[in-house]
C-alpha cells in the first residue's frame, strides 16, 4: 500500500491529469481541423522552457509558464509572418517553424548544460511520468495529512491548475466555442469574433502543452489532444457528449495505460519495464482504433 502511494499513485495521477487537460482542449483542435497544432505546440514550447530555466534558475510554475507562452507566441508570430508577409504555404510554414524551434530547444539543452540534470531530451520526447513520486507517503492516512500532501510532486499542482483553467473557460464559453467551430462567418454576424475565439483555442492548447510537457513529454501530449476526442467523435453527434466521452477515454487511457505498463511485464514474469507515458498513448490509440472499427458514428466512406 505504501509503495503504491509513494510510486504508483502520483505517477498515475500525473499521467491521468495530463490526459484530461489535453483531451479537453483537443476536442476543439479536432473540430477546427487543427489537430497538428497540438503536435506543433508540444515542440515549440521546448526552447521557451529551457531559456526560462537558464535565465531564472528555477522550475517554478510561473517561470515555466512564462517561458513557454513567450515561445508559443513567438512561434505563432513567426508562422503568421511566413504565411502572410512572405506567402509560404500554411502547413509548410507551420512545419518549418515547429521543427526549427524544437531543434533550437534540443541544442540549448545540450549547450547550456541543463541536459541530464533538470531536463533530458529523452524525457521531453518520451515522458518521465515515473519520476513523479511521493516519498512522504507512509500509508493511507497520508492522504489526509497536510504536511505529507504538501510534498506531492510539483507537476501535480501545475497540471491541476491547467485543468481547472481550461475546464472553466470551456464551460463558460462553450456556446461561443461551438458556434465559431461550426460556422465562423455566422459567428461574426452575431458579433462573436472567430479570430478572438481562435486565439483562445490556441492559447488553451499552449497552456495544456506547458503544464503537460515537462511532466509527460511531447508524445503523450499529442496523443491525448487527438485520440480521445477522435474516439468520442465516432460515438456521438452531440458536442457536449463528445467532450464528456473524450474525458472518459482520457481517464481510462491514463489509468489502464499506467496499470498495463506496471502489471503486464510482471504478469509474464519478465524483469522489464514499459514506459508509462508511451503505454498510455498506445492505449488511447487502441481505443480510437476500436471506435473507428465498431463505433456507431464512424461516418460513411468518402469516395475520393
Amino acid at each position: 500500500m505504501t509503495s503504491f502511494l509513494q510510486i504508483d499513485l502520483p505517477a498515475m495521477l500525473v499521467g491521468t491529469l495530463a490526459a484530461l487537460v489535453c483531451a479537453l482542449i483537443g476536442n476543439f483542435l479536432v473540430l477546427t481541423r487543427q489537430s497538428m497544432l497540438g503536435d506543433a505546440m508540444g515542440h515549440v514550447v521546448l526552447p521557451g522552457i529551457v531559456i526560462a530555466f537558464v535565465l531564472a534558475g528555477t522550475t517554478a510554475t510561473w517561470v515555466m509558464l512564462t517561458g513557454a507562452f513567450a515561445a508559443a507566441l513567438f512561434s505563432a508570430m513567426l508562422v503568421e509572418f511566413l504565411r502572410r508577409m512572405a506567402g509560404v504555404e500554411p502547413s509548410a510554414a507551420l512545419g518549418a517553424v515547429f521543427t526549427a524551434m524544437f531543434a533550437l530547444g534540443v541544442l540549448l539543452l545540450e549547450q547550456s548544460g541543463v541536459a541530464r540534470t533538470t531536463f533530458d531530451v529523452h524525457h521531453i520526447l518520451f515522458g518521465n511520468i515515473e519520476t513523479a513520486i511521493w516519498p512522504a507517503a507512509a500509508g493511507i492516512r497520508s492522504l489526509f495529512d497536510l504536511a505529507a500532501l504538501a510534498s506531492l510532486p510539483p507537476q501535480l499542482g501545475r497540471l491541476a491548475f491547467g485543468l481547472v483553467v481550461v475546464a472553466l473557460i470551456i464551460v463558460l464559453l462553450f456556446k461561443e466555442l461551438r458556434v465559431v467551430s461550426f460556422d465562423p462567418d455566422f459567428a461574426r454576424t452575431i458579433g462573436i469574433s472567430p479570430r478572438m475565439i481562435g486565439a483562445l483555442i490556441v492559447s488553451l492548447a499552449a497552456l495544456a502543452a506547458v503544464v503537460s510537457l515537462s511532466a509527460v513529454g511531447v508524445i503523450l501530449l499529442v496523443a491525448m489532444m487527438v485520440c480521445p476526442p477522435a474516439t468520442a467523435r465516432m460515438l456521438t453527434d452531440d458536442l457536449r457528449t463528445q467532450v464528456l466521452l473524450s474525458l472518459l477515454f482520457a481517464l481510462a487511457s491514463g489509468v489502464f495505460g499506467y496499470a498495463i505498463a506496471v502489471l503486464l511485464p510482471l504478469a509474464f514474469g519478465y524483469e522489464i519495464s514499459l514506459g508509462a507515458a508511451g503505454t498510455i498513448a498506445v492505449v488511447a490509440g487502441l481505443f480510437q482504433l476500436a471506435a473507428m472499427l465498431f463505433g456507431p458514428k464512424r461516418g460513411i466512406p468518402r469516395t475520393a
Partner: peptide
C-alpha cells in the same frame, strides 16, 4: 444572415436544434 449552403462542416457534432439555438446566442 443565411449563408450559401456549402460553407460549414456537415459532420460537425450538432443537431438541427443546436444550430437553430445558435441564433439565440447573441
Amino acid at each position: 444572415y443565411v449563408p450559401q449552403r456549402a460553407s460549414v462542416d456537415w459532420d460537425f457534432p450538432a443537431t438541427a436544434a443546436d444550430v437553430v439555438a445558435m441564433g439565440l446566442y447573441r
